[in-house]
Design a protein around this nucleic acid. Structure first.
Lengths: 206, 206
DNA sequence: ATTGTTTACTGAACAGTGTTTAGTACGTTT
DNA sequence: AAACGTACTAAACACTGTTCAGTAAACAAT
C-alpha cells in the first residue's frame, strides 16, 4: 500500500515547488515586493492552496531561509581544506561578505528580516541554522587559539566579536547606510576596513 | 500681512503633530504594525490629510528618523567632555549599543529599515544625518591617532571598521539573530565581545 | 457687505495585502 | 456503484497605502 508514501512524497514536492517559486521571486524582485498571490500565480495554483502546505507567510520565509543557509554552507566548504587556521578564519569572513553582496535578498532573509525568526518563535524552537553556522566559526577560532595565533579565554566571545565585525559591513551596506559614500569609496572602505580588522586581530589578540 | 507667516507656522505645527504621533505609535507598537490610518486616528484627522503634509509613508519615516538622530546626538554630547580620546571612542561605542537596546524601534528606523532611505533616494540627497554622525566618529578616531594610542593611515577606514563592529552586535541582537543563546548568555556575550574588541583595538592598532 | 478665490480637509474609492471558509470535484475505498 | 476523504479554489474579510472629487471655511477684492 504505497499510496500514503506517494502522497507524502507529493506533499513534499508541493512544498518544494512553493519554496522554490518563492525564492525565485524573492531573488528577482526583493522580498518586500512578493505577495502570496504572486507566488501562487508563479506556480499556477490558487493562493488558498499555499495555506494547505504552510501555516503562514513567515513559514515560507523560514523555508527559504533554510535553503539559503545550505547554499552559504556550500560556499564555506572549500575553506576547510586550508591548513593555516587563521587563513581559514579570514577566508570565512571574506566569503560571508561576498555571499551578502552577491545574494543580497537571500542574505536579508537569513540575517536581517525578522519574519522567518517569528516562524521559529511560535514553535519555541532554537535557531539551529544560526547555531550550526556560529559553531563552525567558534571551531575555527578555537583552532586559531590552539595554534597560538589568537589568544582569548572564551572562544565563543571571540567568535561573537569577529562575527559582529563582519556582519556590520554587510548589514550597513545592504540597508543602504553607506549611502553617504560614493559607489567607489564604498567598495574601498569595505575592503580596507576588513583588511584593517584582520590586521588588528592578528596583532591585537596575540 | 503676517498671514502667510502664520500659515507657514501652522503647517510646520501640523507636520510636527503627525511626526510626533507617528513616533509615539512606532515606539509603542513597533514600526511594522503602524499604518497611516493608525496615525491619522491618533491625531484625529482623516488619512487623506496626512498626504497634504507628507508625500508618502517613507517621508514620515524619514522625519521620525531625523528626530531619532537628534535624540542620539543628545546622548553623545557628554562624551566630548572626556579628556582621553580613547575613552571618548569607547564611550561612544557603549552609548551606541545602549541607545539601540533602549530605543530598539527608533534605532531600527535609523539604521536598519530601508524605507527612510528610499525617501532620500528620490530626492537624490545625501544622507546628511549619517554623514554627520560618521564624521563625529572619524574625528574621535583622528584624535586617538594624534594622541598616539591608535596607528592607522586612513582615519575613515579605521572608523568604518569600528562602526561595523559596534553596529554588528546591535543589528544581530535587534533582528533576533542571537536567539540561539539564552537571554543571560546573550547579555554576557555582547558585553564581553565589546570589551574584547576594545582590548584588541588598543593592542592591535598600536 | 457681497462677491470670488484660495486653502484645508474629508468620504469614498482603487488596487493591493495576508488569511479563512464554504463548497466542489476527483481519487480512493468499500 | 455508492460512500468517503482529500486536494483544491472562488469568494469573502479586514486590512494596507494612496488618490481624487467634493465641501466648507478662511481670505481677498470689490
Amino acid at each position: 500500500m504505497g499510496i500514503i508514501e506517494r502522497k507524502e512524497r507529493e506533499r513534499e514536492e508541493m512544498r518544494r515547488l512553493i519554496v522554490d517559486g518563492a525564492r525565485h521571486l524573492f531573488v528577482q524582485n526583493g522580498y518586500e515586493k512578493v505577495s502570496i498571490r504572486n507566488i501562487a500565480e508563479a506556480i499556477e495554483y490558487s493562493p488558498a492552496t499555499i495555506y494547505l502546505y504552510f501555516k503562514d507567510k513567515n513559514e515560507i520565509l523560514y523555508a527559504v531561509h533554510q535553503q539559503a543557509f545550505s547554499k552559504m554552507m556550500e560556499e564555506f566548504r572549500p575553506i576547510f581544506a586550508l591548513e593555516d587556521p587563521f587563513e581559514r578564519l579570514v577566508e570565512m569572513g571574506r566569503r560571508y561578505i561576498n555571499f551578502a553582496v552577491e545574494n543580497p535578498e537571500l542574505f536579508d532573509i537569513m540575517f536581517i528580516v525578522t519574519a522567518p525568526m517569528e516562524a521559529l518563535e511560535c514553535r519555541e524552537d532554537i535557531w539551529s541554522e544560526g547555531r550550526i553556522a556560529f559553531n563552525m566559526l567558534v571551531q575555527v577560532v578555537q583552532d586559531c587559539i590552539k595554534a597560538g595565533v589568537l589568544h582569548a579565554d572564551d572562544a565563543e566571545v571571540a567568535a561573537m566579536m569577529i562575527w559582529s565585525n563582519i556582519h556590520g559591513y554587510t548589514a550597513l551596506f545592504l540597508r543602504k547606510r553607506l549611502m553617504m559614500f560614493s559607489e567607489e569609496r564604498r567598495q574601498v572602505l569595505m575592503r580596507e576596513a576588513f583588511d584593517l580588522f584582520v590586521h588588528t586581530l592578528k596583532k591585537g589578540l596575540q
